[in-house]
């Protein structure tokens, strides 16, 4: 019997990447969104909630500033996490924690779990995020909490005090068993997240949420990563749309173009 903590990341949306005139990334202009695979983690939590008998706690940390500008976006991500099944949310947001550094993020999240979700029996984390894609937070948190860790779960079942997960490795699947509490990272294949219904969205506004500052989640380790430069990768593709009156004509023109390129 226990709660499920789902780590939810408000990530920079790569589909809305913006650049400055000098070709560097305009970080402040890129909006945040609830990270893709976090939706899978929330869906997995919903499926496991009845078995575990506790509630779902979404735990968020704001990794990107400027803080004033992010308030609305952070609120929207929190609302979405609640609409997607979380029963309550804790949001860590503090100038001192910006920009996110995995060492700080993992420590803060672990501290928050210990303090605000001491009876959690499962911590679910996405395999990776869409902005950084480093996939290191789950393992760090497991180590900090001293809990068993299963990574890249494509399937989870819970039986009493045990969790069994199918772990995806590149060329095979490993069936792993751990005792609860445990930290598990989930892959995109674990489920197909259902978009929240209007009713779920409306109810989300009434669910409890609490904003935490750095002082609530101390001690905070020293920052080790320093940004030097973020440069846009310019794709210089020709972007020619082949047009014609019939599909035959289009096919012929395409073949001709590819022959000219010397790639057929």
């Amino acid at each position: 019997m226990g709660d499920i903590v789902v780590l939810v990341k408000p990530s920079l949306n790569p589909d809305m990447t913006r650049s400055k005139p000098d070709g560097t990334v305009d970080l402040d202009a890129i909006p945040l969104k609830l990270d893709d695979i976090d939706a899978n983690a929330l869906e997995a939590a919903k499926e496991l909630k009845n078995t575990l008998g506790g509630k779902i706690i979404a735990l968020l940390l704001l990794p990107w500033g400027p803080i004033q500008k992010r308030t609305r976006e952070l609120k929207m991500v929190t609302q979405e996490a609640l609409a997607r099944g979380a029963d309550e949310a804790y949001i860590v947001s503090d100038e001192k924690l910006l920009p996110g550094d995995p060492i700080i993020t993992a420590t803060v999240l672990s501290n928050a779990i210990k303090k605000y979700a001491p009876s959690a029996s499962l911590v679910l984390v996405a395999e990776a995020s869409i902005d950084q894609t480093t996939g290191q937070i789950a393992g760090r948190v497991a180590a900090k909490l001293g809990l068993p860790f299963i990574s890249y779960a494509r399937k989870i079942t819970i039986d009493g005090n045990k969790i069994v997960a199918e772990r995806d490795v590149e060329d095979h699947i490993e069936v792993m068993e751990a005792s609860l509490p445990a930290v598990v990272s989930v892959t995109q294949e674990i489920n197909e997240p259902r978009p929240p219904t209007l009713l779920q969205i409306r109810r989300a506004g009434k669910k409890p949420q609490k904003t935490l500052s750095a002082a609530d989640v101390e001690p905070i380790p020293e920052r080790k990563k320093e940004p030097v430069e973020y440069k846009i990768l310019t794709v210089s593709r020709k972007q020619v749309i082949i047009e014609g009156d019939t599909l035959e004509e289009i096919a012929e023109k395409l073949i001709e173009a590819l022959e000219k390129e010397g790639v057929l």
Partner: peptide
């Protein structure tokens, strides 16, 4: 990633991927 993220968490090591 699995094993080294745990090592990173154990000693607060920076990890670049």
């Amino acid at each position: 990633r699995d094993a080294l993220s745990r090592l990173a968490g154990t000693y607060d090591l920076p990890m670049a991927t």
